[in-house]
Design a protein around this nucleic acid. Structure first.
Length: 468
DNA sequence: AGACCATTTCCTGGTT
DNA sequence: GAACCAGGAAATGGTC
């Protein structure tokens, strides 16, 4: 059977034991409805009923007869080059895990929440006492994380659009065939009120699918009120009532008395840092519990899972540093002691020395940063299915128009290449803006995170690729 | 060694 | 208010 690339990635994602292990809660009984929702949302679109005995068909598991003949490929097709013991031997094993009580893979949005800062300490808090330029960005500039951290009622129209793109991508829908612009001016609150007809009016082809995904997303959310006991979780499925959050009074410290890095702050605290409505906190079943108890802080599991599937870039030569660079940006931010918080810190303008970052600890000598131009690097990852469309995507490849999807993750890739742990999208974008004057990039007015290669740049890079 | 280039860092101010 | 954008200024690191 021939499987499209998006399907392949989905299947790989599903079979990867890591996401499974990170998303179910041991000892928790999930209802049959939850399991069925899971199958309908994730398993069924991917796994057709099969003549392969090794495969468990979702329809069959529900007592329905298989309606299509679609052979699931041998798992070894996907795992070439990986240690065999790292992966399930067949699909039935994966499905079995999913259908057993306690083994529940949360809906699609849960995995995306992995892009959010990870909570190691449920008592951690964040009190907005960091200077603005030292704070970790709440969304990590990750548009997925932005919508996944809010209840859909509080989504902005941009976040609605981001979710639509995400839903399309998750289902292997080519965005060129999507009427995404119909969702452009719809706020989350209006989407919540919309029925199936509304979705179909906006998107005749995929409206039904989007409607179902959206309803499942809403139904799968837990609302959790802040309590005095931050360790206490009281999930109430489908309870979307509101109650104001209670502020925290302290910064939780690490064992060495330094405040916890922002990346360790909980989903709860992220909600607190958002605008007013986001003080109300929603969770996808299971995520916070598992994260807080067992999740290692790095690397970002969502991205790590992707990287595991692609040990070698399909195109070009993305240095290995990129693939294994630390994505957990906030972890690298300098700790700020409480006594410094209220002191206005003004340093002389210009670039401070960053010698320490260029030190090769293993060999005890200076390590040279890769000397690759930023715009060529951007082009390379745009041409690399490992990063496109997850991190960056073409808006119009012929015209050279592209868009940052996970801006901060791209900045981290770039920082990895340059041995610069402190790279951010803000800095990367400044470097990008230097290209306007030099005629490498052209401005795209009114569109955030969208850039355009000049014709000259496109020609240069094409020549370079042909010459390789 | 020094010039030059390509960023990198920080900043102010504006827009979405 | 956060995120993003624009662009000035000054500094760094790599290359020649």
């Amino acid at each position: 059977m021939i499987i499209s690339a998006p399907q392949c990635v989905k299947i790989c994602d599903m079979l990867d034991p890591f996401p499974f292990e990170e998303t179910y809660i041991e000892g928790t009984d999930y209802t049959g409805q939850q399991q069925q929702n899971h199958f309908e949302n994730i398993v069924e679109p991917i796994f057709c009923s099969s003549s392969n005995n090794n495969t468990t068909d979702p329809a069959k598991m529900r007592g329905e007869s298989p309606d299509t003949a679609c052979k699931v490929p041998d798992s070894t097709d996907f795992y070439q080059g990986y240690p065999a013991q790292s992966y399930p031997t067949d699909y039935s094993e994966s499905h079995e895990r999913l259908t057993q009580p306690g083994n529940y893979d949360v809906p699609y949005c849960a995995k995306l929440m992995d892009s959010s800062p990870v909570c190691e300490d449920r008592n951690a808090s964040y009190d907005r006492q960091y200077p603005p330029n030292k704070r970790a960005k709440m969304s990590d500039s990750n548009e997925f994380a932005r919508w996944s951290n809010k209840h859909p009622e509080h989504w902005s129209s941009q976040e609605v659009l981001d979710w639509v793109f995400y839903a399309a991508e998750k289902n292997g829908i080519d965005c060129e065939h999507l009427y995404a612009e119909n969702f452009r001016n719809i706020a989350g609150i209006n989407l919540c009120k919309m029925g199936l007809e509304g979705f179909l009016r906006l998107e005749p082809t995929y409206g039904r699918l989007f409607y179902k995904m959206f309803r499942d997303l809403c139904d799968g959310l837990y609302y959790q009120q802040r309590s005095e006991n931050p360790g206490h979780l009281s999930p109430k499925a489908n309870d979307l009532s509101f109650s104001p959050a209670k502020p925290r009074e302290h910064i939780t410290m690490n064992s060495d008395s330094t405040p916890l890095a922002p990346s360790y702050y909980s989903v709860q605290d992220m909600g607190k840092m958002e605008s007013a409505p986001s003080q109300y906190m929603y969770e996808v079943p299971g995520m916070t519990q598992y994260k807080c108890q067992n999740m290692p802080p790095m690397p970002n599991p969502f991205q790590a899972a992707q990287l595991k599937h692609h040990p070698l870039p399909p195109y070009g030569h993305i240095p290995s540093q990129i693939m294994y660079s630390n994505f957990n940006m906030a972890r690298r931010l300098p700790y700020i002691h409480e006594e410094h918080i209220h002191q206005p810190i003004r340093r002389r303008p210009g670039r401070p020395r960053i010698k320490s970052q260029h030190h090769d600890e293993e060999n005890g000598r200076e390590k040279k940063a890769k000397n690759q131009h930023l715009w060529e690097f951007i082009y390379e990852i745009l041409m690399n299915p490992m990063y496109n469309p997850q991190f960056l995507r073409w808006e119009n490849q012929r015209e050279g128009v592209f868009r940052f999807v996970q801006s901060e993750a791209v900045a981290q890739l770039w920082g990895g290449l340059k041995n610069n742990e402190n790279m951010t999208y803000e800095k990367l974008s400044r470097a990008m803006r230097h290209y306007y004057k030099r005629g490498i990039l052209e401005r795209v007015e009114g569109r955030r995170l969208v850039y355009k290669f000049s014709r000259v740049a496109m020609e240069r890079v094409r020549e370079k690729r042909h010459s390789i």
